[in-house]
Design a binder for these strands. Structure first.
Lengths: 361, 361
DNA sequence: CTGAAAGCGCTTACAG
DNA sequence: CTGAAAGCGCTTACAG
């Protein structure tokens, strides 16, 4: 190693053996070397501070022991979005547990040919596509490519590739059913951006639950935002002008619900006394909002873990998978929903009432 | 390519040229091939769907064009922590911008020899150590290793390696000074876990500001938590028993501040009327808390970006760097701090008062 | 038990 | 303008 990092050849020379033997002891291929040889080799490794070059190893083994996570539409903040970071966290946990490394492939545009350059290049053994947008060109490519792969997060139902997701439609359907059982009939909806599969599915669940209960939703009850707190505020402002007034609102995500809560508080409308508010996601802020937000928890981390498992299984078995793994959403009951009550709230001592009902987490 | 992925050799054969020529046109080394040759090669590439194997390229070039991010103490959730995910987001943004990929190296234990195996193995061109714990063995290794590297987040002041961080001590010092200018003199402190550099530095800033103002802090005013909301609640419960009572509390992070806020609200103590509360970090939940939390924003994403820049500069120049890049914290004034007032709050109509003072974001 | 040789897929002098 | 050859650092049959 004239001036550089020691290689297996340096170790072999120092130990006075062949590189084949070094490889054998390094991989513990028993019976192919004497104990004395093993010791000499290990000592040389130690003295030289030798570390096998994984790149070279990957080249010959055609395995990188690395999982690729491809995220499209990367402009500005991405992991700032807790959904992505939690998903990644789950993937990372499972990868580490199974001895894989993680490579993040951030695409500025959803360009399949660019994606292929970074993925089908030997640097990853398989890929997870994280929460693709509606109609993303990457989906088509993903269906056709031959490397192990799985889509994590919402994707078309007829996708010919393995995928893992929460049951968006079913969770909202169940939650709205619950609201109806609590006596609510005029239930508004703050939807998400239509270029998200998740937003579409959730809205569908809302509509179907109303329909199955014999309630005809009017389009006035539905407003859409872009998942931001600001858009939640704007949607609620509009909704507040609708007559007859609604008694509950389900929001497509927590941030919009939090925005809605703000507007309600500013207007002196009591939650949940006057209006019940339901969110989706269970972001951290939901628990510390006032009142603490009742919401549908989506097991994002578990989705990440399951995605990685499914991917690793494909890699190690050599068998492609096309199954869909669907997790149920979980209703997290806090303090923003209560049974419907026709009597107007007593606004004289709202603080006391809120305080007395607040549950400890 | 008998049954497998096409290689450069397949392209050369199909185009009827040598692999050298294929390489040359692929890299656009002008003047080394005719226009006609170029076209034949490109057509073969197209027809075969050829994509260069980056692993092979890395082996000969000794450059992977990949940045490593090493995170120690990976047990369970990691990126669930917004600090890490935001840091990673900044690193990712800069990496993508500069044409680098990202590899995440999650260490279950802070074991240098294990870390070396994953880093000094040719798979990354340099490494960023993300927010090492106090006394981490990785720090020592990081100082000694010869690959390009930078520490992102708090680290010892005498570290012999490049690092990027926020000015923890200075930011808290300035904020406490501000509180003092607002008339507060009995200022409590909810500290963080002492195995974080950041927590140590922030506490030091608090102490120094009091000292410089001629105020002697009593140990009763200081409680430490573990950065969780729960620990913030517990700390505040204890603090509330101290007499004379304090008029302001600075919290080592927002989650503990949020926990403190909860306890105060439950006890009917008005914030900021009775007690001013200051956080640190400006997590998303801080803005939607009630009252919205006044806090010190730490430019985490910018720290990530600067770390990546510093690393890439080292990689591309071949020159090691040892500079410290320190960002100032930014005071984000919301509604949880007000000037000291000796008169007790009028608890009869607290809601109205809170509402009237609430600022729009 | 041990080692010489071929090869993974590319790039880089170098010679023509 | 073009190509044969050596080599990056490792692994894997294969022969002894």
């Amino acid at each position: 190693m004239p001036g550089g990092t020691p290689t297996i050849k340096d170790v072999a020379e120092r130990a006075g053996v062949s590189v084949t033997t070094v490889t054998n002891v390094l991989h513990g291929r028993g019976g192919r070397f004497s104990e004395e040889t093993r010791e000499r080799v290990m000592q040389a490794v130690e003295e030289l501070g030798y570390r096998p070059n994984q790149i070279a190893r990957s080249l010959v083994r055609r395995r990188s022991h690395t999982l690729g996570v491809v995220v499209e539409h990367f402009r500005g903040a991405l992991l700032g979005n807790p959904y992505y970071s939690t998903l990644l966290d789950g993937i990372l946990a499972e990868a580490v547990r199974s001895g894989y490394q993680l490579k993040i492939i951030a695409l500025e545009r959803p360009d399949p040919s660019h994606a292929r350059l970074s993925i089908e290049d030997g640097s990853v053994d398989g890929a997870i596509l994280a929460a693709p947008l509606y109609g993303s060109p990457l989906l088509r490519w993903f269906e056709e490519c031959h490397i192990p792969r799985v889509v994590a997060g919402s994707s078309p139902h007829d996708l010919r590739a393995a995928c893992v997701d929460v049951d968006d439609e079913g969770s909202v359907y169940a939650a709205v059913q619950w609201l109806i059982r609590l006596g609510h009939r005029r239930i508004a909806f703050i939807g998400g951006p239509t270029n998200y599969w998740s937003a579409q599915q959730r809205e569908r669940g809302y509509l179907r639950a109303l329909h199955d209960a014999g309630i005809t939703p009017t389009s006035h009850w539905i407003r859409r935002g872009n998942y931001s707190t600001l858009s939640g505020r704007q949607a609620m402002e509009k909704l507040l002008q609708v007559r007859p007034a609604f008694s509950a609102v389900v929001c497509c995500n927590d941030w919009m619900a939090l925005g809605a809560l703000e507007v309600l508080r500013r207007r002196g409308v009591l939650v949940p006394d006057d209006i019940s508010v339901l969110g989706f996601d269970d972001v951290e802020a939901a628990a510390v909002a006032s009142p603490p937000l009742t919401t549908i928890r989506q097991p994002v981390r578990e989705i990440g873990i399951a995605s990685a498992q499914l991917l690793i299984r494909q890699i190690e078995s050599g068998q492609p998978a096309t199954e869909r793994v669907i997790f149920p959403g979980e209703l997290v009951q806090r303090d923003s929903v209560m049974p419907y009550s026709a009597e107007p709230s007593d606004r004289a001592k709202p603080l006391r009432r809120l305080r007395s009902r607040r549950r400890r987490r």
